[in-house]
Design a protein around this nucleic acid. Structure first.
Lengths: 153, 153
DNA sequence: CACAAATGGTTGCGCGCGCAACTGAATGGG
DNA sequence: CCCATTCAGTTGCGCGCGCAACCATTTGTG
């Protein structure tokens, strides 16, 4: 019989990796939001759709949902909003009339080509706080975790 | 005049660190959710409140909001729900009658002491996919980013 | 060929969130 | 000492999300 019969195990939330990861992801999102939100009036789902469609010639909502890992209803609504702003347009794909091919309009492409360099620059200025060894180490860890959780594409 | 007058810059979302970080944080949350959600019927805000209150003798909603970085209304509602389940209780603090001291009840403490080891174990089993050098590198990078974004406590 | 099952995408609904406004209590300056 | 300001915490409200149900089309199977 010891002096401490039930030494209570503690959990310090601020040292708990899942919590810290959430907090970091939120912080990074906010750090980035200035670019697409205040400057171009896009929210996160819209920004992700723009980024996905812009890197393709055209694609389906399905594809967007899969590669952004957003729920298909969230994609559907973001696409509708972007279409209303005339940043993207949809054509019936001749092959399968259930799906609709999404592509950027002229002004969508203009916005995209303005936005992307700013976003990449912002990412770079964030990662610039890491030394090159730190960056490598961090990215390597991320990749392993992604593989473990099967988050890769 | 070149052949490619405006070589469009592309952004591959799946290689974009802010996006990957969000995806990873979500994945880790889901990986962890099994512990507190399906087993103890807590959602994320409730779990964070339990973890925070449990690591203190007693504390205010204010303190919970600051250390979990949750909005005070989110804290307020989580606290109300946990009080309804009799997992925590609130006493008027004698000093300042605006604030109320929150602490775990007997059954709250029981749940806490069951939950915490499981959560820590789950964190460990996640991080076990990293080699010790990978883990060090990953955590070092996280710390630097946290400091850069002023997310530390 | 017909009908059941699956698939792409949209929509009604309930819920949780953050914002802004509020209540009640403490504080500070004239 | 009073009144304006600040602060802890709660609540009404609008909005965006995911779930489930749905529509239209395609595919698979007997």
């Amino acid at each position: 019989m010891t002096v401490h019969p039930t030494p209570e195990r503690l959990l310090e939330l601020t040292a708990f990796v899942p919590f810290r990861l959430n907090r970091l992801a939120t912080g990074v999102s906010e750090y980035l939001a200035a670019v697409y939100e205040t400057r171009f009036g896009l929210d996160i789902p819209q920004w992700r759709v723009m980024a996905t469609v812009g890197s393709q010639h055209e694609c389906t909502a399905q594809y967007i949902a899969a590669s952004t890992r957003m729920h298909k209803t969230r994609v559907s609504r973001a696409v509708a909003q972007l279409e209303a702003r005339q940043l993207i347009e949809r054509g019936s794909s001749t092959a399968d009339r259930r799906e609709r091919q999404v592509r950027l309009t002229k002004s969508g492409r203009r916005l995209y080509s303005e936005l992307v360099p700013l976003a990449l620059e912002r990412e770079a200025s964030l990662l610039a706080c890491l030394s090159s060894e730190q960056l490598t180490g961090f990215l390597t860890g991320m990749e392993t975790l992604e593989r473990f959780l099967q988050l890769e594409d």
